[in-house]
């Protein structure tokens, strides 16, 4: 961790902003630049920054679940979104859309990508940070 007042203050401000921004990036991805991959990375940068400024323990508190659980949930989400098509007698991963709500299974798939990328990067960053934190002590 880096005990810098400037970094810590900014980190507190930036984390909720990056989270919101990443969700927006995820949502707009279908029609404009963005998507689950970029969104997931963005969300991860915020938390990683927070972890650098404070500590791994503090950063972990920001996460809704363990990174490995996020990875599993993401992969599960993407796979399950593919199975929806079977209920419409289409094959695996065919996009199924609700025309009125403008919501379809590709968005569900992308949410899975978002969760997984976020979880993978968190797992990388937190594992390394924890190791360094412990070696530093």
């Amino acid at each position: 961790m880096i005990p810098s007042l400037v970094l810590r203050t900014w980190a507190k401000l930036l984390v909720p902003l990056t989270f919101l921004f990443s969700l927006w990036i995820l949502y707009r991805g279908h029609n404009s630049p963005g998507g689950g991959f970029a969104g997931g990375i963005l969300a991860a940068t915020g938390v990683a920054l927070y972890g650098l400024a404070y500590s791994v323990a503090e950063a972990r508190k920001l996460l809704p679940a363990q990174p490995l659980a996020l990875i599993g949930a993401g992969l599960g989400f993407s796979v399950l979104s593919g199975f929806v098509a079977y209920f419409y007698n289409r094959t695996f991963l065919t996009g199924i859309w609700n025309a009125d709500l403008k919501i379809g299974t590709p968005l569900l798939f992308d949410i899975g990508v978002y969760l997984l990328v976020f979880g993978v990067l968190m797992q990388f960053a937190l594992t390394f940070e924890r190791r360094i934190g412990e070696e530093g002590e």
Partner: peptide, 14 residues
């Protein structure tokens, strides 16, 4: 076919 304007994204997710 994929109801999306962002070609990159429709390739990735659809």
């Amino acid at each position: 076919l994929a109801l999306g304007k962002n070609v990159v994204n429709t390739i990735i997710v659809d």
